[in-house]
Design a protein around this nucleic acid. Structure first.
Lengths: 195, 195
DNA sequence: TGTACATCAGTGAACGCGCGTTCACTGATGTAC
DNA sequence: TGTACATCAGTGAACGCGCGTTCACTGATGTAC
């Protein structure tokens, strides 16, 4: 059985969760250490008892964001699969749901930060690569058995790109991009539909 | 005939060009006013004789980046079209060229900044939307006559997403994503190839 | 062509502000007997 | 169960630094006669 978490471990988890939302909402550099600690109900001085540096916190925040978003996608897929349809359809309809446009804060970490990833320091970039790989793996698990990694990467890139453009354009135009992308991905890659 | 540009107009153009590269290289907030002025061979104090605010400069820089990148894509396409093939193939092979991975600085402004666009102030976001629209228009001009806007948006999103993922992953993995995307886009949308 | 003056374009010091990080301290929690 | 002490977790003031912006000034360019 699991040990009860210490007071410090609880604080730590709270900080990481707050940070994982903050960076998705405002980017890697959008919120400061002090703001994050405040939102976690603490003062900024204690930050360095939890992390070696701001970057170290970013790494943990990205990992948490990725894992909890993948878990949330899995829940959405399970829910949709009960109504029938392929795993790919379930993923596409969950990921490219209109609600994902506005819910950046608990949405996909890759879509939230893709264009900023190349500008961060090594440790952060490395974690970014792991987050992308994890998402590609989920996508691949929804494709036909013989689909290779490159195909999963293509589908991932299409979903991420579509979500970003939907967010940048907003409104009706944004929703229409998602609709078009859902349709195209399901038509072309769904194992249940001949093509 | 065109008037000779004044000394100030020349400086202005130089600042905008430097800034358009800087934001693509390091993001909207990656380089400060002082650095940009220095790279343009000036001192920071003169900045506000050229722009009402830093944001106003960002708007001009994005416009310049978008226009000069589209012009550069058009040149690349013309060059490739001489060797035969469709306009779509020419665009895809120019945009998704391996060299575009490293050349962020004079590459696509949308791929360079997509995930950051939603976080900027109104004027900047508005210009970002115009840059996306301009790129979608170029893409649409390479698709079959009956292709609608939504299809052009989908192809654009796929190219932008693929380039971003290629940059984030880097190396061999990055190049393989571009290759897969080139192949898929040409196969599916090329008017010369039946599908 | 030369001189006197007005305008233009850029300089560099200074401003208030917020950032990441450090550190001496404090109050709460846990442990030993 | 109660007391004494050690450790833990968090506090808040302070640091050096770089940012966007302002402004009084200067030297170069252009214009009038």
């Amino acid at each position: 059985m699991q040990k009860a978490p210490t007071r410090k471990e609880l604080s730590h988890a709270r900080i990481v969760d707050v940070a994982s939302r903050a960076i998705r909402r405002t980017g890697y550099h959008g919120v400061g250490v002090a703001d994050i600690m405040k939102e976690a109900g603490l003062t900024h001085g204690g930050f360095y008892a939890h992390f070696a540096s701001r970057d170290a916190m970013l790494v943990e925040a990205m990992q948490h964001a990725g894992q909890s978003n993948l878990a949330s996608l899995a829940r959405g897929m399970t829910h949709r699969l009960r109504k029938g349809g392929s795993r790919l359809r379930a993923l596409v309809e969950t990921y490219l749901n209109d609600a994902h446009i506005d819910r950046t804060e608990d949405g996909c970490i890759v879509a939230a930060l893709a264009s900023e990833m190349t500008r961060e320091d090594d440790a952060v970039r490395e974690e970014a690569r792991r987050r992308i790989a994890a998402m590609v793996a989920l996508v691949q698990s929804t494709l036909p058995e013989d689909a290779d990694l490159a195909q999963a990467q293509l589908v991932t890139a299409t979903m991420v790109g579509a979500l970003q453009m939907a967010r940048a354009l907003g409104g009706k135009a944004g929703r229409s991009i998602l609709a078009q992308t859902r349709q195209a991905l399901i038509e072309r890659h769904d194992p249940g539909i001949p093509h």
